[in-house]
Nucleic acid binder design. Structure first.
Lengths: 161, 161
DNA sequence: TATTGTTATACTCTATAACTATA
DNA sequence: TATAGTTATAGAGTATAACAATA
């Protein structure tokens, strides 16, 4: 085997691997975009809520003691100004409240109101059923396998991005 | 086994399945959002192009004979007005041209220019390397497996959405 | 009348940066 | 000074609907 042939093989394998990853990415993007678009549409049509507002409520549901604006900003991965806007809207609809922090007068804790909690429970149950239906084409084993692969993927992404 | 116990088991299995799907979806969304955000940022920083414009060029690269505005609208899954805007920008930069349709004077074919083709080739190679790197944490077998599972997923989604 | 594409407009989501109040 | 949050603004990205030209 001369070096030219060897180099060629290596390069062609690299290119094949590249193509495999690219095709995989396009397929993955297509699936998640379809689901996300559908979820956004249904949330709007059935509950008149946007996805970022739903996500903010989901965070508060998991943290009943409340979260500060800065924490919400980190968790939802958007800058502070946006959290102010989303929180304003939800507060206006009486779904969340800003509670003054007793120790730091610059800060607030945002909490779900009783109405917000009830409202989120109702939406979350329906939302979960939508997702279960959309993933219903996979066997339980396939879902587990997908879950594991994506876990590994995420670890790798956190190193590269 | 009485019917109450039996019902409870069924319900609990349903709920577990629901939770499994929901967790899976959140993980998948997180992975694809991370990749998509990173790709958008890099395209902007390194090539001063947005993702929709890159995607439109990718469609034209695959269809050298050109595509009509309506076809682009379908393929990119956005409404016509947006295609007009993206095409205007790309045409201004001499990357695409509108070619009058000889048979239907209402219609155009949009094609890549020589500059557009060369420019896309350069970007696509770098883009593909980014993706290969981001998926580099998975073995070839895991990628194949992910590819197959997503294929099945997509078939199912096309029935449900 | 129906279709192709354009224009006008508005809304959501996001980031950046200047700002206020407090630490 | 530094930090928590707000305000103001700008720019993607998208949809809807009215419109002109042509079929």
């Amino acid at each position: 085997m001369n070096s030219k042939a060897s180099n060629y093989d290596v390069e062609s394998r690299v290119t094949d691997q590249h193509h495999q990853s690219l095709k995989l990415w396009l397929r993955m993007l297509s699936c998640s975009t379809m689901i996300e678009t559908e979820v956004r549409t249904r949330l709007r049509n059935e509950f008149e809520i946007t996805l970022p507002r739903f996500d903010l409520m989901a965070q508060l549901e998991r943290h009943p003691q409340g979260l500060r604006m800065g924490e919400l900003s980190q968790r939802l991965m958007v800058t502070g100004g946006n959290i102010t806007g989303i929180t304003d809207q939800l507060e206006q609809e009486k779904l969340v409240v800003r509670v003054a922090d007793s120790k730091d007068r610059r800060a607030y804790s945002v909490k779900l109101t009783a109405l917000g909690h009830a409202s989120f429970q109702r939406m979350a149950a329906v939302h979960e059923a939508w997702i279960a239906d959309m993933f219903g084409g996979l066997s339980s084993e396939q879902k587990s396998s997908l879950f594991e692969i994506l876990a590994q993927m995420k670890v790798h992404l956190n190193k590269r991005i």
